[in-house]
Simulated scan of single mutants.
Amino acid sequence: MYPISPSVDAEVFAEIPEALSYGSRKSDWASVQVHGNATPTFLEGPCFDAAGDLWVTDIPWGRVLKIAQDGTVSVGAEYDGYPNGLKFLADGTALIADLKNGLMKFDAAKGTVEPYLTRRLLEPFRGCNDLCVARNGDVYFTDQAQSSLADAYGRVYCLRAATGKLDLVLDKIPSPNGLVLNKAENALYLAVTRANAIWKINFNADGSTGKVGLFIQLSGGHGPDGITIDENDGLAVCHVGMGSVWLFDAWGEPTLRIKSPKGRMTTNLAYGGPGNRTIYFTESSSGTVLKAEVPVAGRRLL
């Protein structure tokens, strides 16, 4: 449908050192998600703090790792959970979408992780995956678990900052994953991994869910994972299994492919660096964070 977009190769920003890896140790998470293969680390959730340091999650080992601007890696916290998406809030703390526990709150200064929202009414979440934060503090997050085209029970929720009310935005989704609001915050883009697609959830004037449509259809690999957005409402999409990050303009036309030199498990990403013009993304199977400069600056998100 579109001409082949130009491509560039990413470069290594940081690698998890052997001293911080778990070697051949097994985990329950790895037995399901990566078929029991050894998982020294499995990185997700890159997010920059106010000081310009990058934080990532290490899912199977319940860790939040800090990567300083010189690439030095340290452990910020370790707890009983499967942390995935991570976003810093205006007060300097962060929220974690945790597969095992729900939403958790991370205090980097104290090195603590505590429950923040673990259930809807009396119903535990099935398995939270990722989140994004609106300008007014509303938190949108995905409850993905093992949903797929064969069992499409995935959901998107919104936790309202002003009232504390938890709204169901959309359900019956085959594997909702990364998500990001557009600049006007009147629509939410959603990576639907098992459908290999990006959906667009439009909001009505009162904030309720409006029309939902398929915005980008991908092919190959395992499907889209983390997504983020630039200043012109263009999307950047991590395509797991393809070893790539795709850039699309505001109309969904591909403009650039960023290739991983390390592996094909390109899972999640964030804009950062000078002028916010560099994409940093995780290649989970190798415990690596990659980076590439891009033409349009990313939007600064909470």
Rank of each mutant, 00 (worst) to 15 (best):
S7P: 15
S7D: 12
D9I: 05
E15N: 07
I16Q: 08
P17M: 13
E18Y: 05
E18T: 10
L20W: 12
S24F: 09
K26C: 10
V32P: 03
V34L: 14
F42I: 07
A50E: 15
A51Y: 13
V64C: 10
I67M: 03
D70P: 10
G76T: 02
E78V: 12
Y82M: 13
P83S: 03
G85M: 04
K87A: 12
A90N: 13
D91V: 05
G92M: 02
A97G: 00
G102Y: 02
M104G: 02
M104H: 06
K105D: 01
D107P: 04
D107S: 15
D107F: 00
A108W: 01
V113L: 06
V113T: 03
L117P: 00
R120Q: 08
D130G: 02
A134L: 08
N136W: 02
D138T: 05
V139N: 12
Y140F: 11
Y140D: 02
Q144G: 07
Q144F: 08
L149R: 12
L159S: 06
R160W: 01
A161H: 07
A162Y: 14
V169Q: 07
D171A: 06
S175Q: 15
L188D: 01
R194H: 15
N196R: 11
A197N: 11
W199P: 00
I201A: 08
N202M: 02
T209Q: 04
V212R: 12
G213I: 08
I216E: 04
G221V: 07
P224Q: 08
D225E: 11
E231D: 11
D233G: 00
A236F: 04
V240P: 08
V245Y: 02
W246N: 01
F248H: 00
P261A: 10
T266Y: 11
N268I: 09
Y271A: 13
R277I: 04
E283Q: 14
G287A: 08
G287C: 07
T288A: 14
V289N: 01
L290T: 05
K291E: 04
V294T: 01
V296K: 01
A297P: 15
G298D: 00
